[in-house]
C-alpha cells in the first residue's frame, strides 16, 4: 500500500515536472495555446515541439535510466555506493562518444555509431573496474578503482578534445564531464531511444533475482537464480542504457547514487522493488535539475550536472561516513 502510494506520488511528480519543463524557457510561452496550434507553423509550436519537447523527453529518459541503473548496480553489488558514474561506466561511455563525435566520423550517416560507442565504452570501463577491484571487493576498493577509471577517462577526453580538429572541441569538455541538455533535437532523442529502451527491457524481471541476492550469491543460487548470468545481464543493460544516455547528455553525476538510496526505505529495502521507483525518482530529479539550471540566472547557461553534483557530493560524503561507522 505504502509502495503503491509512493509510485502514484512519484508519477504525479514526474508528470508535473515534465509539463513545467515544457513551460520554462527563455521565452514566455503559453504552452496550451502552442499545443492547440500544433498544426500551424507558429513560432510557439515550433519552440514547444522541436526545442522544449526533446529536452524534456531526454531529461525524462536519461534521469530514469540513471536512477534505474543505479538501483540495479547497487542491488547486484549489494553496495549502496555503487552507481554508473562512480564505478566508471558513465565516463567510459563519454570517452568513446568523444572519439566518435570529434574524429573523422563527420557524416550524419555515421551518427548511429554514437550510442553504440557509448555502450562499448561503458561496458569496457565497467569490466575494467571489476578486474581492478576483484569480484568480492570491499566498498573502498571498488570506489578507488572507479576513481582511477574516471580520472583516466576524463584525462583521455581532455587529451582527445585538445587534439580534435574542431576549434570548439576543447570548450566542450565541460559538456561531457558535467552533462548538458540544452538545444538537443528530436533526432538526438530518437538516436538514444532504442538503446535506452533495450537496456531497460533487459532489466525486466531481474527485480526478483536482485531481491534474492540479499541472501548472498550462493543462497540466491539455491533459490533458482544464476548469479553469473544476472551479473552479465545487468552489466549489458547498464552499458546499453547508460551508454546511449551519456553519449547524448554527457556524464550527469550522482542521480544513480542518491535516488536508490533515498527510496530504499520506502520499498522496505527490497532491491527488486527498488528498480521501478528509482526510475521514476531519477526522472523527477533530472527534470527538476534541468528546470533549475534554466531558472538560475547566469550569463552563460549552467550545465545540469553542476546542480546534481552540488546536491549529490555532500550526500556522497554522508554515505561514506555512515558506511565507515558501520564498519567500526
Amino acid at each position: 500500500m505504502k509502495e503503491n502510494r509512493l509510485v502514484i506520488a512519484l508519477s504525479i511528480l514526474v508528470a508535473v515536472l515534465f509539463i513545467m519543463s515544457l513551460w520554462v524557457g527563455r521565452n514566455p510561452l503559453a504552452i496550451w495555446q502552442a499545443a492547440q496550434a500544433l498544426d500551424s507553423e507558429s513560432v510557439g509550436s515550433i519552440i514547444l515541439m522541436e526545442i522544449r519537447l526533446p529536452r524534456a523527453l531526454i531529461a525524462l529518459f536519461a534521469g530514469a535510466t540513471l536512477g534505474l541503473c543505479g538501483a540495479a548496480m547497487q542491488g547486484l553489488l549489494r553496495n549502496p555506493l555503487a552507481s554508473p558514474d562512480l564505478i566508471g561506466s558513465s565516463s567510459g561511455a563519454a570517452l568513446c562518444a568523444v572519439i566518435v563525435l570529434y574524429f573523422g566520423f563527420t557524416t550524419s550517416a555515421s551518427l548511429p555509431l554514437l550510442p553504440v560507442a557509448g555502450m562499448v565504452g561503458a561496458l569496457l570501463a565497467t569490466l575494467l573496474v571489476f578486474i581492478l577491484a576483484g569480484r568480492d571487493s570491499s566498498i573502498s576498493t571498488l570506489i578507488l578503482a572507479g576513481v582511477a577509471i574516471n580520472t583516466l577517462a576524463t584525462a583521455g577526453m581532455a587529451l582527445l578534445l585538445n587534439l580534435a580538429p574542431s576549434p570548439y572541441a576543447m570548450r566542450e569538455l565541460v559538456l561531457w564531464t558535467m552533462g548538458d541538455l540544452t538545444d538537443r533535437s528530436m533526432d538526438d532523442f530518437y538516436l538514444m531511444l532504442p538503446f535506452t529502451v533495450l537496456g531497460w527491457a533487459l532489466l525486466i524481471g531481474v527485480g526478483r533475482q536482485l531481491s534474492a541476492l540479499t541472501l548472498g550469491e550462493s543462497t540466491a543460487q539455491t533459490l533458482g537464480i544464476n548469479p553469473q548470468r544476472l551479473r552479465w545481464r545487468i552489466f549489458l543493460a547498464v552499458a546499453l542504457a547508460v551508454g546511449a544516455t551519456v553519449s547524448t547528455t554527457g556524464v550527469i553525476g550522482f542521480i544513480g547514487l542518491i535516488i536508490p538510496h533515498l527510496l530504499r526505505p520506502w520499498v522496505g529495502y527490497d532491491a527488486g522493488r527498488l528498480l521501478g521507483v528509482s526510475a521514476l525518482g531519477g526522472a523527477a530529479l533530472l527534470l527538476a535539475a534541468d528546470i533549475g539550471v534554466r531558472l538560475i540566472p547566469t550569463e552563460m547557461p549552467l550545465k545540469v550536472g553542476v546542480l546534481t553534483a552540488i546536491v549529490g557530493a555532500p550526500f556522497f560524503l554522508h554515505l561514506i561516513l555512515s558506511a565507515r561507522k558501520q564498519h567500526l
Binding site: L101, Y102, F105, T106, A164, S166, P167, Y168, A169, E172
Partner: peptide, 11 residues
C-alpha cells in the same frame, strides 16, 4: 568559421 568541415556539438 575558423575551420570548415570539423565536427563538434557547437558546430
Amino acid at each position: 568559421p575558423y575551420r570548415r568541415n570539423t565536427w563538434s556539438r557547437a558546430e
